[in-house]
């Protein structure tokens, strides 16, 4: 397919716009010198990726991305930054300026290799199921049928992360404080 054919389809304009937005926002995430700005650019990146999923007719994944990643994970980042005594202002060391040449070489190299192999492997193959709706009941049945075992195991991953995280993050009482509160 030639580029003029490709660009003549309106859906590809949407794709191009989203992809460039994701790229620009992603670039700012790693170059921003303010950690709050970086987190906000991450929101833009994730929202753009959610848009790409909508283009692929994967609305469920798109909304999971919006609800879980933008709605919960990034908000937790921001809470974490604000509640702890981490610096919120400009931090010149944050973008690791000295490592930029190495980072550029590694990421451009990786991009070249990955895009070359992927384009070569898939070429013009259409993604199956684009344009169809994904009924959520099928997803639900798969999660609680064939995939019920990993689904339950994920519960234990989260439990372990929760308990371990709390244990490591909480401030230990000094022996004196402990005595005052009574041994528990």
């Amino acid at each position: 397919m030639s580029f003029s054919d490709w660009i003549s389809q309106p859906v590809n304009w949407v794709f191009l716009g989203l992809a460039l937005a994701v790229l620009a926002a992603g670039f700012r995430v790693v170059t921003s010198q303010n950690v709050v700005h970086a987190a906000l650019f991450l929101v833009a990146t994730l929202a753009g990726v959610a848009g790409l999923f909508v283009l692929l007719s994967a609305e469920f994944v798109a909304w999971v991305l919006v609800l879980v990643y933008i709605g919960a994970v990034v908000v937790l980042f921001l809470f974490g930054i604000m509640i702890t005594r981490a610096p919120t202002g400009q931090d010149v060391g944050l973008d690791n300026r000295r490592a930029r040449p190495v980072a550029a070489v590694v990421s451009l190299g990786l991009f070249g290799v990955l895009s070359w192999t992927s384009v070569r492997a898939f070429q013009d193959t259409a993604v199956a199921g684009v344009g169809e709706r994904t009924p959520t009941d099928i997803l639900g049945e798969a999660l609680l049928g064939r995939f019920v075992f990993p689904f339950e195991v994920v519960g234990f991953v989260l439990l372990a992360a929760l308990i371990g995280g709390i244990t490591l993050a909480r401030r230990d009482l000094t022996p004196k404080e402990e005595e005052e509160r009574g041994a528990v």
Partner: peptide, 14 residues
């Protein structure tokens, strides 16, 4: 993958 996560995840904290 879930098994690998559950094996190594708790060890980061331990």
């Amino acid at each position: 993958f879930i098994g690998v996560e559950l094996t190594t995840g708790p060890l980061f904290m331990l």
